[in-house]
Amino acid sequence: MTYLGEGWDSTAELVDGWVVRRPRRPEIGPQLLREAAVMPWLAPRLPLPVPVPEIVSQEPVVVRHALVRGELVSLTAVQGRQLGEFLRALHAVPVEEAARRGVGPMPLPIDRFRAEVRVPGGAELLAELDGLPADTLVHGDLGPEHVLGRDGVLTGVIDFGDLHVGDAAIDLAWALHSTPPEFAGALAETYGVTRELRERALIWHRLGPWHEVLHGNDIGDPEVVEVGLTGVLERLRTG
């Protein structure tokens, strides 16, 4: 058994070649069970390997899936094109079929944002969230730790716990606004990013650290809160 680490929602261990995941909090159990129901249907539609969990136990919740091999990537133009193709395929999946498998919208904690993240310019950013579309199947948490590669190419995308029906631009936030120009440009060209999509992606990019503040409050860790607040202010300033 090898301990692989933990995210905000679950822990992961490598046991006999399987990645075994357990929820860190009771409310995450249904999320892992939903992944086990959705990913076998979704995986064949995508051009890169993704985790396909199966249920080991429902009480307590334990799921497992084959290891998606790879490491953190260097973010080249080749990989940008690959991720652009991946997102184009994911965002083309019919949301009606996803809904039949239990995937729906994921409401934002707007009230908590207002109460717990009080910074100059914060109210204006939250106002920009009004009216954003929610009509696309999205990964919902796409960042550098969830995109794997090896030998200069992508080898997989992991962590679909936040899969939901939302704004396609949320999956472009990191990819367009926190990556090298050659990666972002290749992705944008392959995906077909419009000016409107890029602007919406910037809104989601600015909002990212807000979730870190809330997470720090949830686990009672002032250092996590401070890191989150620093990120909030930096992104509001640099936009």
Rank of each mutant, 00 (worst) to 15 (best):
E13H: 10
Q31P: 08
P44F: 06
H211E: 15
A173I: 05
I203Y: 13
F86D: 12
A123K: 14
Q58P: 06
V68C: 04
G143V: 10
L207T: 00
P144E: 10
E59W: 12
A12N: 06
L154I: 09
P181W: 11
A99C: 07
M39S: 14
L137N: 07
R88K: 13
R206Q: 11
L126R: 08
I110S: 10
D167G: 05
A175R: 12
A188H: 10
P60R: 04
G17C: 08
E128P: 11
R114N: 04
D171N: 07
H211M: 12
L187W: 03
A127G: 09
E35L: 00
L229D: 01
W210H: 10
L87K: 00
V93G: 09
R118A: 13
E6N: 09
W204R: 13
Q31N: 12
H146P: 03
L90I: 03
A175E: 04
T2V: 14
V193R: 00
P107F: 02
R21K: 15
R22E: 06
G102N: 15
G192V: 00
G228Q: 01
P40K: 11
W174Q: 03
P60H: 01
L4S: 05
A173N: 02
E27Y: 13
P181S: 00
A99R: 13
S178K: 08
G17M: 10
M39D: 08
P30S: 05
E124Q: 05
L48P: 07
F113L: 05
